[in-house]
Design a protein around this nucleic acid. Structure first.
Lengths: 146, 146
DNA sequence: CACAATTTGATTGTGTTCAATTCAATTTTA
DNA sequence: TAAAATTGAATTGAACACAATCAAATTGTG
């Protein structure tokens, strides 16, 4: 009997779904960089501001849940945004454990500059059809739903 | 005439495609962690080994291109894998600038342990139908194709 | 051959990212 | 109510991740 070669196909990089997901995520963030450099925000700072542009005031915990970031990541991000003058950080009166993050006027103003970014990103880098975008969106949120 | 409110819909986190991509990527890597802990590899080390399991010997530059990683990331990863005894790092004879990374026997052995990971990940975490997986795969590589 | 331009990997600096731990505040339970 | 458990943020440590820069080697051009 011939020695049977074990089947390692499952370990081929090209057979992984995790890998193109990981690579595409980094690739998109990289493509954002030139636009985000214009308003001097990193990607993480940008998505944080996005939440605040929708909801002026929010607890740090809820913010972290929306962004899928834990406190170890979010704490320095929020401190940087505070230094830049875009947010304030204060403890809640009801519960001193809770940190409330609030948008400032300069933070609100930044929204005006940022509003052109999604469209410019789309026209410059979005090679997907509307149909593909919608499908991708649905599948990704299915993964996140857990 | 009523003051027209500017349309900020494009800046809503829920309207971004980049964000679920970013979040899902991190989420999947997190789900891998328990399995990768068993063989004491990080995700980055794991995908690096994956390439080496397919191609025993490879230049650092080509490796970085396959993994979408630059030298600043790859150099410490390769040094760690060398310390763990899974790879060797040597300069090429033809071109002293080129770093050749080669799989060792322990590195090859690790493949045996790793081979169960993709299937266990799939059954534990993969809530996508085969059809969805295939679609996701295609779209992600379309993004990466650039 | 000479030398500028290019290529390649390594280094440095900044910014995440998360697990684990700590600490204070709050809530639950005995 | 007092003790125990829980919660929320901050801190720490290890590992990415990439831009910018550097040094060494090779290549291209006259």
């Amino acid at each position: 009997m011939l020695k049977q070669e074990k089947n390692y196909d499952a370990l081929r990089l090209s057979n992984q779904l995790c890998f193109p997901l990981y690579a595409a995520s980094k690739e998109i963030i990289k493509r954002y960089k030139p636009y985000l450099d214009e308003i001097d925000l990193t990607y993480t700072q940008y998505i944080t501001m996005m939440v605040l542009w929708e909801k002026e005031k929010i607890g740090a915990k809820e913010l972290g849940e929306k962004l899928y970031l834990d406190s170890g990541t979010l704490t320095p991000v929020l401190k940087t945004l505070e230094q830049k003058g875009y947010v304030t950080r204060h403890r809640s009166n009801e519960d001193e454990r809770t940190l409330l993050v609030q948008l400032t006027d300069p933070g609100r103003k930044l929204k005006e500059k940022a509003v052109t970014i999604p469209e410019r990103m789309a026209s410059a880098c979005m090679l997907l059809t509307p149909d593909e975008s919608a499908t991708l969106y649905t599948i990704l949120y299915k993964i996140l739903k857990k």
